[in-house]
Write a protein that binds this DNA or RNA. Structure first.
Lengths: 175, 175
DNA sequence: AGGAGCATGTAAGCGGTTACATGATTTA
DNA sequence: TAAATCATGTAACCGCTTACATGCTCCT
């Protein structure tokens, strides 16, 4: 499975970045299928520095902590390409929501409806975020846009499903 | 996030099961959104036994190892319901495939097509598995069927997306 | 004869996350 | 004045997975 390291190397292929910048990149592009926290990013960067995949430049700033600017090396580029040649791994999903739906008969209808509505709201929010991102950057890199469209189609299907379920369970209410 | 424990308790609500049975249940019902291995299941069952959420009966068998049959207790039922009252957590996704697509411009077109085709084959297989399961059990518990239909609609959207991409990249070949 | 199915279990490791610690600047 | 942004870092913990160990029976 591609790790946080591959993703970081990929971001650094476009130019030098700080750990903070990288976190922002994660959030505004791949977060709907690949998440990362500071606790994962900073140690990964230091490991990569130690291993010669990146170099670190300390930029002094006034009024805020020094910024560590990381730049990918030739060895880093090679490592990136090598990692992309590894075997494709199946995606990893763990859905709290679906497990609750699966065991739905064990809870009251009101509880079940609350789950559906909460999930619907979450999906709507993700959908707005993603489509907003698409509209905000008309010149988005084509491959990046492909993953965005993938996300949109997934969320749209989820929304259709959840709306249909809400309708169905509401009909059952008067029965 | 609901853990492997909640899922196991849920399965045991319907009747006593061995660790092996539970693994089979995972695979034939929730594996498209919640996976578990023996290394997770057995230790969880022993913890739950220690904590009084289940009881263990050893069934002697000839020609194969003893079977440990686990039965949920009243405390176990309470724990299950309590866990279902916890806050709904967002789903967890990590997609190796989409990260590769995202960085697609760094690989040759042939490599990219190989990824698309491999992903298409995987999705088709999952689709056949799930729809086969639906046909095989016409009397499937309604809530269980809901999660199956959710999975089908996700896979169908994925297949549409990947087929469209394959078509697009093939068109570009003669350009 | 070989593989799938039945059946259990543990140790080591992984790949992170969560929580904590710190603090100035800018925006609402 | 409160929250968000910028900026870094570590320690403890989690919840597993992977690999290993064992061995009979049934089906092909």
């Amino acid at each position: 499975m591609l790790s946080i390291q591959t993703a970081i190397l990929g971001f650094l292929m476009e130019g030098s970045l700080s750990g903070y910048d990288i976190k922002t990149r994660f959030e505004s592009s791949v977060s709907h299928f690949f998440e990362a926290s500071f606790g994962g990013i900073y140690p990964a960067l230091h490991r990569m520095d130690r291993d010669g995949l990146v170099t670190k430049d300390v930029i002094a700033q006034d009024g805020r902590p020094n910024k560590n600017l990381f730049t990918i090396t030739e060895a880093g580029r090679q490592a990136f390409h090598l990692q992309l040649e590894s075997a494709l791994q199946p995606e990893l999903i763990r859905s709290d929501f679906l497990l609750r739906v699966f065991f739905g008969r064990h809870v009251a209808r009101e509880q079940f409806i609350r789950w559906l509505e909460e999930e619907r709201d979450r999906v709507v929010e993700k959908l707005l975020n993603l489509s907003g991102l698409g509209a905000q950057f008309p010149a988005m890199e084509p491959y990046e846009r492909k993953t965005l469209e993938y996300g949109l189609s997934q969320y749209e299907a989820q929304l259709r499903w959840v709306n249909q379920e809400i309708e169905q369970v509401r009909e059952g209410e008067n029965g």
